[in-house]
Design a protein around this nucleic acid. Sequence first.
DNA 1: GCCCCTATATACCGATCGGTATGGAACAGG
DNA 2: CCTGTTCCATACCGATCGGTATATAGGGGC
Lengths: 198, 198
Amino acid sequence: MTASRGRPREFDPAQALAAALEVFWRRGYEGASISELTEAMGITRPSLYACFGNKESLFRQALDLYERDKLCYMQTALEAPTARGVAERLLRGTLAMQCSDTEPQGCLGVISTVGGVQEAESIREEVLARRASSNAALAERFARAKQEGDFPEGIEPEAMSCYLYTVMQGMAVQASGGASRESLERLVQTTLAMWPGR
Amino acid sequence: MTASRGRPREFDPAQALAAALEVFWRRGYEGASISELTEAMGITRPSLYACFGNKESLFRQALDLYERDKLCYMQTALEAPTARGVAERLLRGTLAMQCSDTEPQGCLGVISTVGGVQEAESIREEVLARRASSNAALAERFARAKQEGDFPEGIEPEAMSCYLYTVMQGMAVQASGGASRESLERLVQTTLAMWPGR
DNA sequence: GCCCCTATATACCGATCGGTATGGAACAGG
DNA sequence: CCTGTTCCATACCGATCGGTATATAGGGGC
């Protein structure tokens, strides 16, 4: 292949992408300007466009990284032995991420979908699609729990997964607003205390 | 007073403010441009600045209108006879607002606080302050319920109010993402089903 | 008829937006 | 050494941002 012809680049794309993710995470898609991105990434404007395409493409790649590195706890949470354990792992995972003091607060997915922006409509749709897929996986896990008799009576698995998802999104809103770790921890406990049947 | 000296204005400020609120509600503070605002309000740029000050001042007045007209259900919900009734009224009020087909979806307060914007920091702070005040009123209502023996065991009133607030914010996120009315209705039912002790 | 005052209309301000043209610097193959 | 290719740096593009200067239009008080 074209192994390394021409002048080699002087930055690490993965590292630059991580920096871009952090900016998008703090500012949202539209709030993040190219100037702020390039400064955080330590590269110049043309380098960004040569390496990542354009702003939207860069955001999509940052979103991939976010899902892969930051949302992996949502996958592993599904492996908990009980439905309540799944919920607990999800909530505690959300808590841990929102309370990190090395990362921005709030959820990139939430930030990218609230506040309608017409320009970024395709991005909104993609985030919503990923969210739906993740929600479906959770619902499926709960459906299995129901079959195994490990599920509260009177609540449909899909309804429960939507409910949990909603609580997690609400947590992200709280974290965006600067809620303290203690406050969010108490929120997790309260939500778990609401889980039917102890 | 200076009853009506000079040329009278040709538009109704209240009506124009209502139009501005709708734009802010759909687009968020930064997403709403002055051009879009003036077009929706049916007035020209200098008229906007003469009547409402600047963009931030206009937003604040729109926020006042929003709280007074759209969030009034949160006040009246506190008058429900039981704690569970308060929760139910809050959730159903949120549902009704999010499902209106004449108004934008999502919550203006949520839209204005997620996605950190440095320019609008003072606005964020004001929204957060109003939110805290509203949350405190809810906590106080629940504290009264606890005194009256009308409250679930093992949960603090303040924790419950934060929890409910979080669910409502999550609902707003769902609505922003285009959740259907049925979906949100089911969400309310699920949340109520989680309320301890029937 | 004035005169004063305020609202409207148009055109403009500097700053910033996302994105790019251009010119030189650093590598590989010949 | 030269050439081809790719990257970096600077400066620039038109469009749009929030906000305003200027001139004109339309009311009440006299």
